[in-house]
Design a protein around this nucleic acid. Structure first.
Lengths: 206, 206
DNA sequence: TAGATTGTTAATCGATTAACAATC
DNA sequence: TAGATTGTTAATCGATTAACAATC
């Protein structure tokens, strides 16, 4: 941690993997780990793990390794998941349902705060503990609630319109499950999940 | 396409994105595109698109660009998604339900062929058009059906056991939704989807 | 022909790895 | 002290980009 250059995004992308592994080790009751042990678990080189962490500070002790709870807390802080982010979910289909019901956000920095859909037959119904809201009112609702993070679970054809409305509502980070690349202003972060692209990446090798 | 070195995996990872964009352009009725147009749509440089494609052949015409249907067919062939892969889904919870009901596999090279769970109360029940099978019988069933691709949608604690059983059943490509890094033999391909890691990658910048 | 765009080369840029002094 | 492991440097490796001849 000596230069002022931005940390490469590829490094940022590995921090959540480290965090997940540390949490897992902690649940197993372990207190200390090493870059070597992490490397074996994750299939990443130990040098890379040390180099990645060195962008942010010195978290280990020579000869001793890393205190797991401490390193976890540091990475949480770096990633800003030492707080809870309210997340809007757009799309109340099967996937939206699975996302809203998913118990895995708790404890990792996120909480679903509201659900939107554009289908008049769904608006007003309950999904888990939420009442499904009209996407038409989304921008205002997002602003009111101060929501910065959203998950898009709508068909590809609706994704760009939904994303535009999210941006209008002040959302700055969007996870898009719709299988289409959307356009956003440069200040908005996008991430994509399309299971088919992951599968296609593997069939090449079969 | 002149050397015999393996094509970098990072290039393989972009082909499904190109394929998705080409299919989209075709649906819009367009017949020809250029590396420049694709680049603008995808937020990738045109040089990179041309270089990626050049690993596999010459698919365009100078001054004219690419015939979309032709390039799409070529990428489908390269990725081996010019056939239909039968996919096993493990885990019949909300996520497994969403995956089985998802209509987006059709036309992109995949079809859900069977569903497994370890919960005796679920085994034998229907999920969509499938009867939920016992994971205990999974390895034999996979071999019988000749299944090479699987999707894991079980809790983290069960993932390694499930993956071991899939490998035993001859599966060679696994898409894991459980938020844990698993160990597989080197000949088995793994891909991961953990929405929380994607979200955490974005909150760093907020 | 003139304009456009490919496929490819070489240069640049960035990421990973190997190695080791520092030190717990 | 001896052994282990960090944090960091320099070397290696690989990926991206710029540029342009080829050519449709």
């Amino acid at each position: 941690m000596k230069d002022s250059k931005p940390v490469p995004d590829i490094v940022i992308g590995r921090l959540p993997i480290y965090l997940r592994a540390l949490t897992h080790l902690l649940e197993e009751g372990q207190e200390v780990t090493s870059s070597k042990e992490m490397a074996e678990r994750l299939g990443i080189s130990s040098a890379q793990i040390r180099k990645d962490l060195s962008h942010f500070g010195e978290f280990g002790k020579q000869g001793m390794g890393y205190n797991i709870a401490h390193l976890r807390d540091q990475i949480r802080r770096i990633l800003q998941v030492d707080r809870i982010w309210s997340v809007a979910v757009v799309g109340a289909g099967d996937l939206g349902h699975a996302i809203v019901q998913y118990g895995g956000f708790e404890g990792r920095g996120f909480r679903v705060a509201c659900v939107f859909d554009n289908n008049p037959e769904k608006i007003g119904l309950r999904l888990g503990k939420f009442e499904i809201c009209d996407v038409a009112e989304m921008p205002e609702r997002l602003k009111e609630m101060g929501i910065a993070v959203a998950i898009v679970a709508v068909p590809a054809g609706a994704a760009q319109t939904v994303v535009d409305a999210l941006v209008k509502g002040g959302v700055q980070a969007i996870l898009n499950y719709a299988p289409i690349t959307v356009t956003v202003p440069p200040e908005v972060r996008m991430q994509y999940i399309d299971p088919v692209t992951h599968l296609q990446r593997m069939t090449y090798y079969l």
